[in-house]
Simulated assay, not measured.
Amino acid sequence: MERSERGFFYGDTTEIIRMDGITLTDTAYTLDRVGWHFHKDDYFTFLLEGGVVEGNKKEVYECVAGDLLFHNWQDAHYNIASGRPTRGFHVELQDGWYERLDVPADLTEGSIRVFSPMIKKMMYNIVREAKLAGTGGQLGVDALLVRILGILGKVRAERDGVRPAWVGRVREILRDEVSFAWTLAGMARELNIHPVHLSREFSKHFHTNLGDYLRMVKVQRAMALLTERGRSLTDIALECGFADQSHFIRSFKGYQGVTPAEYRRLLRRGRC
């Protein structure tokens, strides 16, 4: 089985940034299929554009722009192209990075599809840090990665325990029906639980309140759509459940620190 060396991904890498213990790459995937392989280091794959099917020994994921995967270096996987231009941002973590920051290297195992909007927000900020600061962004990237791995460790512990059935269901509802005008009472009826219970227990499982979680999901859906050429801000705002374009711009900037137009320009850095 083939092992991919550090900094190498199957496509045209338009940017590579090497930090102390971290390698960041921005790659446009060009192959129709990549057979079973594994990598030298643990790493994250963050899809900025397009989509890809990825399989490992346990699961097969159909990923789209905005999806985030974590891979343990020992975990073999394969990839199948979606038939449309696809671009991935990768963060590889060397053993020395874990040691330098005293982060346990066994917080995560195997391949994980990360759903948490909080973690995705932090990964977007890593992309931003890399694009704006390059190798000078080490401090910010280190801090974000430590937080991400800490949350992933908690998520794994919760997954290994007993979790209410409504937790998975509410995540699916808010992901698949993000444009619907949900109310607390309506969501509670859909989940067959009491509104007070939902409001009180939500933050225990999602590490934020229901309103902030929904706003993060909306903005992150918009981030994925912003990579599609020709999509207007008005169309994206309506598709993601914002009242109008001005509301979309305010929410986006409040969440990400830049306007949608500025984010589009940021993603063009490193693109062919």
Rank of each mutant, 00 (worst) to 15 (best):
G254H: 13
G257W: 05
H77L: 05
K204L: 11
T227S: 02
V53H: 08
Y98D: 00
R163S: 01
R269D: 01
M118H: 01
L149W: 13
T183P: 13
N209Q: 08
Y78R: 12
L267N: 14
Y78W: 13
L238P: 01
V103A: 03
A130P: 03
R189K: 14
A157T: 05
Y61P: 10
Q138H: 14
E177S: 09
I16K: 02
A130V: 06
G150W: 14
T45G: 14
T234P: 00
D67W: 12
T234N: 07
E129Q: 08
G66P: 04
V114E: 03
F180N: 09
L48V: 12
V146I: 10
R84Q: 11
V196L: 15
P117W: 08
V34Y: 07
A76G: 12
V34C: 08
L47W: 14
S82V: 14
Q256Y: 08
R33E: 01
T183C: 07
L267M: 15
D41W: 06
D26R: 12
E62C: 02
Y29M: 15
I193Q: 08
D235C: 11
F9I: 13
R18N: 14
R215V: 00
G270F: 13
A133R: 15
T259W: 13
D20C: 05
L267V: 15
L93C: 06
F89A: 12
L144Q: 03
Y255Q: 12
T208M: 15
L233I: 07
R264W: 07
A237V: 00
S203A: 15
A65Y: 06
V219T: 05
F252D: 11
M123N: 11
Q94S: 13
Q256K: 05
F202M: 06
R156G: 09
D95M: 04
I236Y: 01
Q220L: 02
V219Q: 02
L225W: 00
N209K: 03
M223K: 11
A261D: 14
K154D: 12
R147W: 11
Y29C: 13
L31S: 11
R84H: 02
H71R: 05
A261N: 13
D235F: 03
I148M: 00
R159T: 06
I126G: 04
R221A: 07
L174S: 00
K121N: 12
R264T: 09
E99D: 10
G270E: 08
G21Y: 03
W73A: 07
N79F: 09
G137P: 00
L69V: 14
F70G: 01
